[in-house]
């Protein structure tokens, strides 16, 4: 390659306008050149010689010879669960559900009792009439029972007289 071409490439190199290929050409030129260079080209020679020398990297050593590589270790050891651990879980869930149902049921009963003892009327007059009717009906039935009991009493009294007990 002509020195003028190298000068042009060098100018681009110092201005950071050179491509990777052009920089590779410079490295090849300086690595392969023997003999004296013009003064202006000599300026960059040690730098490119240094780059060329640094390109020699020792062979890649084998990695993880003193300790295992983390990706070779088992990731997540399988967790073995016994059979009872499985069904105990469901049994516990069922017990909790039953407890909740029982609690809800008790709460509802208490609420119903409370309503039975609470006032349910809105019209006091109507409530009074209804109560009176209910009591009259009760009284009527009680009187009917009392009459029947009187008949039994007469019958018992007559039986005693006949037997001569009195």
């Amino acid at each position: 390659m002509e020195y003028n071409d190298i000068r042009a490439l060098l100018n681009k190199y110092w201005a950071c306008e050179s491509t990777e290929e052009e920089e590779a050409e410079l490295r090849v030129f300086y690595a392969g050149h023997e003999g004296k260079l013009p003064a202006d080209l000599q300026e960059a020679a040690p730098l490119f010689q240094y780059f060329n020398d640094c390109s020699a990297v020792p062979d890649m050593p084998e990695l993880f010879t003193d300790k295992p590589a983390p990706w070779d270790e088992p990731q997540h050891p399988a967790i073995v669960r016994s059979l009872w651990q499985g069904w105990m879980k469901y049994a516990a869930a069922v017990l909790v559900a039953a407890g909740l149902l029982y609690s809800a049921d008790s709460f509802r009963d208490k609420k119903t009792d409370a309503m039975a003892f609470a006032d349910t009327y809105s019209d006091p007059k109507l409530a009074y009439e209804q109560t009176q009717r209910a009591l009259q009906l009760l009284s009527k039935n009680l009187n009917r029972g009392k009459n029947e009991m009187q008949k039994i009493a007469y019958f018992n009294e007559a039986t005693s007289i006949v037997e001569g007990k009195n």
Binding site: Y13, W14, A15, C16, A39, Q42, E43, A44, P46, L47
Partner: peptide, 16 residues
């Protein structure tokens, strides 16, 4: 990169 090369170049020029 430009500053790095420029600095190194100046030092190389001093060497010469």
């Amino acid at each position: 990169l430009h500053r790095a090369r420029k600095t190194v170049r100046e030092q190389l020029q001093n060497l010469q």
